[in-house]
């Protein structure tokens, strides 16, 4: 048996030349199919182009310029906005608040979601009820939920303070206390987003073959060992997915803070995340160039975090099979 010769590695230019020399380009059928595909894609491309790609490129242009929002003639300022941003104490306060939020809300939400998903994957009674109950907060509109939470945590007539009072703990002013404002937002996000993560984890758990558990049972592995040696490693692709989307979402936290604190940055800027800082700069102070610099800086931070996570994933994520 002769061994097949390895395919020679082509350069990009050679690949492009090969593509244009291929017979497929001379086939009318190819052009008809392509045209059809592009027509189907056109509406989406137009919407994405107008509302995503154009603003994405234009805000980069804005970040390098200074001028009134109403006038297209702008002064080129280069990286001035970025330099100023890195010296702005409000930006660093916003970065710190965002990091604090991400570091507490994401791991806690994932841990609790995994815990409840494993429980809901066992043979417990009222499983359907619990699944619905955990998922309900996720499908509740954030604005409506945040208004309710604002009432729950109100200093004078909030339900949470009544609960604390029952245990003899004095009432707390969660909304106006700089030390409690962000923990309250974190608690809200855990309640709100845990249900979604549970559903994703449940899908992952149900994809793990029962044979692994049967084999482990024969070998005498207990529940804890089965979790750490089978469930957790085989769930890492799902965990990785949940981690990425939770992290990106957490970096962009905005709605709940905006509603709970009536569009402000919270007491002494304690709830001012980067997105709130961005919004206030753009639509409160109307400094569009500076706001675009904030948006791009945040984009780079999220991008770097995602790259780091992907690099770590290569070492830690097990795809089974």
């Amino acid at each position: 048996m002769t061994q097949a010769a390895p395919t020679p590695k082509l350069s990009l230019i050679q690949r492009i030349q090969a593509y244009f020399a291929s017979d497929q380009l001379r086939s009318p059928r190819f052009w008809k199919d392509s045209l059809q595909a592009y027509i189907y894609l056109l509406p989406t491309l137009v919407i994405l182009g107008v509302f995503t790609f154009f603003p994405f490129v234009n805000s980069f242009f804005l970040s390098l310029h200074e001028g009134p929002i109403t006038n297209p003639t702008r002064t080129f300022t280069g990286l001035e906005h970025f330099e100023k941003l890195f010296q702005d104490r409000k930006f660093w306060k916003a970065m710190w608040n965002t990091t604090y939020y991400v570091m507490f809300s994401v791991p806690t939400t994932i841990f609790l979601a995994l815990f409840f998903a494993v429980l809901l994957n066992t043979k417990i009674r009222f499983k359907g009820f619990f699944r619905t109950a955990f998922f309900l907060p996720y499908i509740t509109p954030t604005v409506a939920a945040a208004v309710v939470w604002e009432w729950i945590f109100h200093r004078d007539w909030g339900l949470f303070n009544s609960f604390l009072n029952f245990f003899g703990i004095p009432k707390q002013d969660f909304i106006n206390n700089p030390e409690l404002a962000m923990p309250m937002v974190i608690l809200f996000s855990i309640w709100k987003y845990m249900g979604f993560n549970i559903v994703i984890f449940l899908a992952g758990l149900q994809n793990i073959s029962k044979e692994y558990y049967d084999a482990a049972a024969i070998d005498g592995a207990n529940a804890w060992q089965r979790f750490w040696k089978i469930t957790f490693p085989l769930l890492t692709p799902v965990t990785f997915f949940v981690l990425i989307i939770s992290m990106v979402g957490a970096f962009k936290v905005f709605d709940e803070i905006f509603v709970i604190f009536h569009g402000s940055t919270g007491p002494l800027d304690s709830a001012m995340t980067v997105m709130i800082f961005f919004y206030q700069t753009a639509f409160g102070r109307f400094k569009m160039g500076y706001a675009s610099a904030i948006a791009y800086t945040m984009f780079i931070v999220i991008f770097l975090f995602t790259l780091l996570q992907m690099w770590l994933a290569k070492r830690r994520v097990h795809y089974g099979g």
Binding site: P68, D269, R285
Partner: peptide
């Protein structure tokens, strides 16, 4: 035109003075 920015800067400083 600059007063949109200025009034928020003043409000931030007053908040710091009152409760900061």
């Amino acid at each position: 035109e600059e007063w949109s920015d200025v009034r928020l800067t003043i409000a931030d400083a007053v908040e710091l003075i009152l409760v900061g």
